[in-house]
Design a protein around this nucleic acid. Structure first.
Lengths: 211, 211
DNA sequence: AATGAAACCGACCAACAGGTCGGATTACTA
DNA sequence: TAGTAATCCGACCTGTTGGTCGGTTTCATT
């Protein structure tokens, strides 16, 4: 068990800087040597731990990307309170992080999906899987909201989920390079506006105490 | 004038297949030879007409991408009728085209922005410029709507524009590979829902004849 | 101290990238 | 039809890519 410690450490070091570079420069535009140079490691070390560049990236997805998406977009909306509020805060936090991130290149998933779509089905499978989990999480959050009475019973949970994902993916692209903070603010305002339109009507009036 | 005819024809042929390949495989992942092979042309012909691969791409943006965005997203919403309806129809058409496009790789602008962001400022300048024009067009459409009385006077035009762009960019990513038609339908439903929430109140009631 | 496995090094390879260039074709003009 | 300019060809150059491999270092165990 403890033998693997060094192995794990090296692999993780590679994966972390690998993800950073892939995110910054793109997968196809980042060479294995680029990553190795940053780590002062050799080709031998790399191919000792990973079968290929592709295998390396798949492991990055499974080890790092999945976790990132989980902690950023999945777990924050798994509570049982007012789900619209949960989602609002979740998006707010995620976008705020992006604003303060000095080097922002947009939504990780979006970038990679665009890069691999139609080119690498194997990797696309992994990326789509993450999207699917996000979607499922959102759908069940909306349904919880409907059950809780926070969301109007007539709204289409799947529709709302798709709409939310779309807008989030898009705003992350729009926030790179051009007025991220202002755009975040405008986006959040309109998101709240939209949420108001799918809230249960009783929510807006004082006569919602149905106990 | 007529001398340039052949020149123009060849250049355009190169640009058209160039754009297709760049869209399909990405800029960095498409070699000049790839394009030339498809056209049965030689390196010499390419570098006779274009200074470099980058120059080639810039010209593609100016000649083809700009026009595409214009005819697809700008011109359709420049009318003076109910602008929310114009935008709805515009998005509907654009997404429908995407659904029927056998090989769809997402929103052209989004793909390229993700690929060049942080890597090629020169090209990013051109892409951001197109985004800006789209934004301006949307903003003035919303303002026209407010003036017309179709849109509530209190809504933030810039906010709506950003929200619309975001959602469109995002849905185009979500429509690749996974249930494009269903997602398009859900998206459009929610877009209409959102639009209802920014319509002028009088619009929803029969007592809106203010003449 | 000896040993053997795990971890790492770095020279090397074939394939391919963008770009050059001297020459061959083609097409227009006189 | 001769000549000249526009167009195109394709061998070639230099640098980079993902990947290989024989060898060296590191380190726990005996």
């Amino acid at each position: 068990m403890e033998k693997n410690l060094k192995r794990m450490a090296t692999m993780q070091r590679m994966q972390v800087t690998g993800l950073n570079l892939f995110y910054k420069k793109g997968y196809y535009n980042t060479s294995v040597d680029d990553i190795l140079k940053e780590l002062s490691l050799s080709k031998g070390a790399f191919y000792y731990h990973f079968d290929s560049k592709e295998d390396f990236f798949v492991q990055i997805i499974e080890q790092l990307v999945v976790r990132k998406v989980y902690s950023m977009l999945i777990e924050p909306i798994e509570g049982h309170e007012n789900t619209l509020e949960l989602i609002t805060n979740c998006f707010e936090d995620a976008l705020e992080t992006a604003v303060h991130n000095e080097l922002d290149y947009g939504f990780l998933l979006n970038n990679f999906i665009n890069e691999f779509n139609g080119r690498n089905p194997e990797i696309m499978k992994h990326l789509n899987e993450i999207l699917r989990i996000w979607e499922v999480t959102l759908v069940s959050a909306i349904q919880r909201g409907k059950f809780n009475g926070h969301i109007d019973r007539h709204v289409d949970a799947e529709g709302v989920a798709v709409y939310l994902m779309s807008s989030f993916i898009g705003i992350r692209t729009l926030m790179v390079e051009t007025a991220p903070s202002a755009r975040k603010y405008r986006f959040m305002s309109q998101l709240r506006q939209y949420f108001k339109s799918i809230e249960s009507r009783a929510e807006n009036q004082p006569n919602d105490t149905i106990y």
